[in-house]
Structure formats: C-alpha cells, structure tokens
C-alpha cells in the first residue's frame, strides 16, 4: 500500500444541500469492510484528471458502509465534484488527521459552535454523542449561517431540535422575509448559551475570524483554553506531512491537526499570514 495512491469509491447518492453546497455518499469498490474514521478526520478526494483536495468527513462514524462528504463548490476540484452523479467514481486517500476530543470530553457538556460549512466536520460529533448520549452532559449546538437559505442540513437540524436532550440554536447574519429566528453572528449566542463553563468541551469549526471571536466569548464565559478545540485549514497536497504546505507554525495541520486545542496554538492564532 502506497499512501499516495487513492482507492476508488462509487457515488451512491448525490444531493444538493444549499445553492452552493452538496453532499455525496460514497461506497468503497475495493474494500468490503467499508470505511472507518473518527469524527474530525478528513480524506484527500481525487477527481480524475482535475486534482485532489482535503475534505472533512461528515457522516456517521458508526456507519461503516457509507462514506459521506459535504462540501461547497468553490474551487477547481469542488466545482468538478459538484457535477458528480450517481455511480460516478472518485479516488479516496484517508482518513487522516487527529480527531475531535470525543473521548476526552466524556462526562462534560458538549458545546459545538459552527459557522457556515463548518457544520460539516462537526456533524460526526453530533452523531457520536447522540448515540453515546449517557456519556455526556448537556449537548448544545450553536450554528450561524449567512442567510436562512444557507442553513446546512436544515431538515436534519429541525428533526434533532425535536429531541429533548440536545439544544440547537441557529442564527443568521442576514434575515429575509418569513425568518422568525435569531439574527446576528454566532458569537452573540454564547453569553446566554446553557452550559457549565467548568465542565464543558467546546468544539469550533468555521472561518478563522469566526473561530477567533468565538474563543474570545468562550474565554469570557470562563472556559479553559485546553477545553476549547478548533479545526484548522490550510493548503494540502499530501495529507501525511510530506508536502509541507499545511504548516501552521511548528504544526502540520494534516498530521498534528486539523483539530487543535486552543492552548496548543494560542501563540499563533489570529496572527497574520502564519
């Protein structure tokens, strides 16, 4: 096995999530055992002749038969991915990277804070904590989208909201007609969010600026730096520490991350052009 050679996966389902995001469900052609991963890990997805990019896994870690990726059509490879149809083929290398601290967080309140497409890498955590519900305290999801039309996994969120053992608070930056929910950036939800700052593990994923201000608010609420986790993003060509592109200070995002505790990267976080 060469770590730089992809294996083939077939598209079982393709569906549009919002105007610029979509989800693909993949099945391994070669591996009968399916695909195992931990929440927060990513794959390198290869599109024939176009290129290869890192995308986090957004499916249920307990379901090995299907590999799920949600992404935004924004670059050369993702725009080509957006054209995939049922039975289309992609190359997969992975899973790579360090996962969200779901084991370390046992016993704690789980605070998930997502911005935009940042909800996709956190969805496996939601699946995991809900299927191991008795191991965790309160489960809170704070989610910010640009507009009501940009809300990812909307039906699923509405379904989850009906459960009594998870708090889901959604906000949009810009409201439109018929929107009766919260308006404002996701950080405005933090001061009143119902968690116990002493025993909470926060996991944040979104644009760097959103994560920065989220951390500011969490620190104000008294969360410890070592209990705040973020998922970082940089250019990646290999996923295994050979290409150098994803370096973030002394860290390789691909193998030392993408999930880091704030304590580990505090000295770099928010600094320009690192």
């Amino acid at each position: 096995m060469d770590v730089m050679i992809p294996t083939t996966y077939k598209v079982q389902k393709f569906f549009k999530e919002t105007h610029d995001t979509f989800t693909i469900e993949l099945k391994s052609i070669e591996n009968k055992n399916g695909f195992s991963f931990e929440p927060g890990q990513f794959n390198m997805i290869y599109i024939f002749g176009v290129g290869e990019i890192p995308i986090s896994i957004s499916g249920d870690p307990n379901k090995h038969g299907v590999l799920v990726h949600t992404t935004r059509a924004v670059g050369t490879v993702t725009r080509e991915m957006a054209k995939l149809k049922k039975d289309g083929i992609v190359g997969i290398r992975g899973p790579f990277g360090k996962p969200w601290p779901i084991k370390e967080a046992v016993g704690n309140d789980i605070l998930l804070i997502a911005g935009g497409i940042g909800l996709a890498p956190l969805r496996p955590v939601i699946y995991h904590v809900l299927s191991h519900r008795e191991y965790y305290g309160k489960i809170i999801l704070l989610y910010g989208a640009r507009t009501p039309q940009d809300i990812l996994y909307r039906k699923e969120l509405e379904r989850l909201k009906s459960r009594l053992d998870i708090d889901i608070i959604v906000t949009v930056d810009r409201a439109v007609k018929n929107w009766t929910g919260n308006v404002g950036v996701v950080t405005t939800l933090i001061p009143r969010a119902p968690f116990d700052p002493i025993n909470t593990t926060a996991m944040i994923c979104g644009p760097e600026i959103m994560m920065r201000y989220t951390i500011v608010e969490l620190l104000k609420r008294g969360l410890a730096k070592e209990n705040i986790f973020v998922s970082m993003e940089r250019n990646m060509k290999c996923g295994v520490g050979f290409c150098g592109h994803c370096q973030y200070g002394t860290e390789f995002i691909c193998k030392d991350g993408p999930v880091f505790s704030y304590k580990e990267i505090e000295h770099l976080f928010g600094k320009r052009e690192i």
């Binding site: 730089m4 024939f48 002749g49 176009v50 290129g51 290869e52 060509k237 290999c238 050979f242 290409c243 150098g244 592109h245």
Partner: peptide, 20 residues
Amino acid sequence: FCMTVEDYTDLQKTKAERIQ
C-alpha cells in the same frame, strides 16, 4: 522537502498522470 502535485490528462480524457 516541500512538493506539489500536478495532473496531466490526455486529450481523450481517458488517462491522467499525477506528477510530484
């Protein structure tokens, strides 16, 4: 040691090479 990768396809789009 840093490297990048480039993909080259033939004109029929049946063969693609990945070069490091």
